[in-house]
Amino acid sequence: MNKEKVAYLVDSGSNVPKEYVEQGNMNVIPLKIIYKDEEFIDNVNITAQDVYDRLQDEIPTTSLPSGEVISEIFKKMQDEGFKKVICVTISSGLSGTNNMVRVISENFSDMDILTIDSKNIGIGSGLIAVQAYKYVEAGLDWNTIKTKLEEDVSRSKIFFHVPTLEYLQKGGRIGLVASILGNMLNLKPIITCNEDGVYDTVAKIRGNKKSVQKAIDLAVDFAGNAKNYNLAIAYGGKTALAQVEEIRSVLKEKLPLAEAIFEGEVSPALGVHTGPGLIGIGIIITDS
């Protein structure tokens, strides 16, 4: 039960597990997928597979929704009687969503609005939103929730395996030289977000299978001696989905104390920049 009558606002790039969006009545800010002749709303009228199927013809761009869209969501929460709002967004180092939410929230001074810059992307950000919901349902006081969520930013991580550097390079996410060299040597990068919330290559492994295993190993290292944590497997497209069952089995063996292992496809907006075949291993340490 929602003790404090807290509303939630997340962006579609955070890939919050569907069950938490629904049971938490979370409001989702939809990012946009823009082609030359048309545009779509992230995860509303386009899927990640749709994006992949069209990549040979056109690589779209992504953008924020208008400020008016975000204002309307805040107004809706206000009209529903909410006095407290928790906003969790993908990293401000990768998107302007967080800053836009902060600026617009100043127009709703009658609500206590907490905006968390996850310094992360995809389910790495979504796991923080899950924790926000759990803290409220556990009846924690507002100040404690604020403190714990700020701590959770450094306690969550996602490690992405991508089978090609092509889309990251075309989207300006990594340098051209690194892209050419990596593709020539069949090196598969493991990408995470650093402490500033920007993409950082933490490893380059030859071959897809070894690269996925390295992403798992990095999550294990991140867990360290923690006794409580949640895990997530993010995938991009049909080929990646086929690997999920085996990855889940390995995670259960290597990280047996996981309270939950969430699974889900990355948002179309993230798929634009990474291409098909992505595997992401997310983890958040939940020790109290």
Rank of each mutant, 00 (worst) to 15 (best):
K5P: 15
V6T: 15
Y8E: 05
V10R: 04
D11G: 13
S12T: 04
S12W: 04
S14E: 12
S14N: 10
N15P: 03
P17W: 05
K18Y: 14
E22L: 00
Q23C: 13
G24W: 06
G24F: 10
N25S: 12
V28K: 04
I29S: 03
K32W: 10
I34R: 13
I34C: 14
Y35H: 07
Y35K: 11
Y35D: 10
E38G: 08
E38I: 07
F40C: 03
V44P: 02
T47D: 06
Q49I: 08
D53C: 05
L55P: 01
T61M: 05
S63L: 07
L64H: 11
E68K: 14
V69M: 11
V69T: 14
I70T: 14
E72D: 09
K75H: 15
K76N: 15
D79G: 10
F82T: 08
I86T: 00
C87H: 08
V88L: 02
V88E: 00
T89H: 11
I90L: 14
S92A: 10
G93V: 07
L94K: 02
L94T: 08
T97Y: 00
N99I: 11
S105T: 04
E106Y: 13
E106N: 14
E106K: 15
F108P: 01
D110W: 08
D110C: 06
G122T: 11
S125Y: 05
S125L: 06
Q131M: 12
Y135N: 14
Y135E: 14
L140M: 07
D141N: 13
D141Y: 08
W142F: 03
N143W: 03
T144F: 01
K146G: 07
T147I: 10
K148C: 03
V153N: 05
S154W: 02
F159C: 09
H161Y: 15
T164P: 01
Q169M: 09
G171H: 06
G175F: 04
L176I: 10
L176A: 12
V177T: 11
V177N: 07
A178S: 14
S179V: 00
L181I: 12
G182I: 02
G182H: 02
N183H: 05
I190F: 12
N194Y: 05
E195D: 13
G197K: 07
D200H: 12
V202L: 06
A203M: 03
R206H: 00
G207K: 05
S211P: 13
V212C: 00
Q213P: 00
K214S: 05
I216C: 06
I216T: 00
A219L: 02
F222Q: 02
A223I: 11
A223Y: 10
A223Q: 06
G224C: 08
N225I: 08
A226P: 05
N228L: 10
Y229C: 04
N230L: 06
N230I: 09
A234C: 02
A234K: 01
T239L: 07
A240G: 00
L241Y: 14
L241W: 09
A242M: 11
I247T: 13
S249N: 14
A258P: 03
E259A: 01
A260G: 05
I261D: 09
G264V: 03
V266T: 13
V266G: 09
V266A: 12
P268N: 01
A269M: 09
L270K: 07
G271I: 08
H273P: 10
G275R: 04
P276T: 04
P276I: 10
L278I: 15
I279K: 10
G280A: 03
G282D: 01
S288Y: 12
